[in-house]
Amino acid sequence: MKHALSNDDALQQAVVAALRAIGLAPSVIDVAVRGAIVTLRGHVENAAQKHAAQSEALQVDGVLALVVAVEIRNAGSRRMRDDQIAAEVLTRLAWDGGVPPGAIQVQIEQGWVTLLGELERGEQKAAALESVSRLFGVAGVTDLTTIRVEAAERAATTAATVPTVTTVTTVTTATTATTGTDMATGPNRDAAGEQAP
């Protein structure tokens, strides 16, 4: 079992190490800790990096709460307008072979993308989220897509259906008519094999 870190300095070092392991140096994201509450401040290039930083910080033993003050921006470039982001998102989804054409609608507000629609498989949902979250200018993604019930039920039914083999055993009984002789007991003998009077 892992032991929780006992003080804020050790917790800060652990979070910094976790962020370094995914390529986010302290010069990109500053880590402050007070009373086991971790605050991340800084900027990253895309929503995927922001999400990775949040996930890694929450994985560190001893973190009780996480405050995220991380902006998404690319050094030397200006912020994209929502209509530009929408065009990029739609283009990326159209190129993604894992997402059916026209299955997802997008809504953008201040760089935050919301995905809406109905898909057939969880893999399509994951592919859409992955594609969109890595785009420049996307501040974050809310995935409100759903999996079609019929498709999900069909997949569950197919996975749960196991071929059934039924074996039928046929027993044939032969009856022989005899006169004075019982086939099981012999001539004039009772069931115990004794001579009948």
Rank of each mutant, 00 (worst) to 15 (best):
V15S: 03
A48M: 06
A36V: 02
R20S: 05
A18Q: 15
A14V: 09
N46Q: 03
D30A: 12
V31Q: 12
L40C: 06
L19Q: 05
H43I: 04
A36E: 14
Q49R: 13
R34V: 08
V28D: 03
A36G: 02
R20C: 13
A48D: 09
H43E: 15
G23P: 14
A36Y: 00
A48L: 12
V28H: 06
G23L: 11
V33D: 07
V44E: 09
A18R: 13
V33G: 02
H43W: 15
V33E: 12
A48G: 10
A14F: 01
A18P: 03
H51C: 03
V28K: 14
I37N: 13
D30E: 15
D30R: 15
V31H: 08
G42H: 11
Q49W: 01
A18F: 01
A21K: 11
A47D: 15
V31I: 05
L19D: 01
G23Y: 04
A14E: 01
V15E: 07
V33M: 10
A14L: 03
T39P: 03
R20G: 05
H43A: 13
A21M: 00
V44F: 10
A47L: 06
I37D: 01
V38D: 05
V31W: 08
A25K: 06
E45I: 09
G23T: 14
L24P: 05
V16M: 01
A47W: 09
V31S: 02
A17R: 01
G42C: 15
A18I: 10
A36M: 08
A21W: 05
V15I: 04
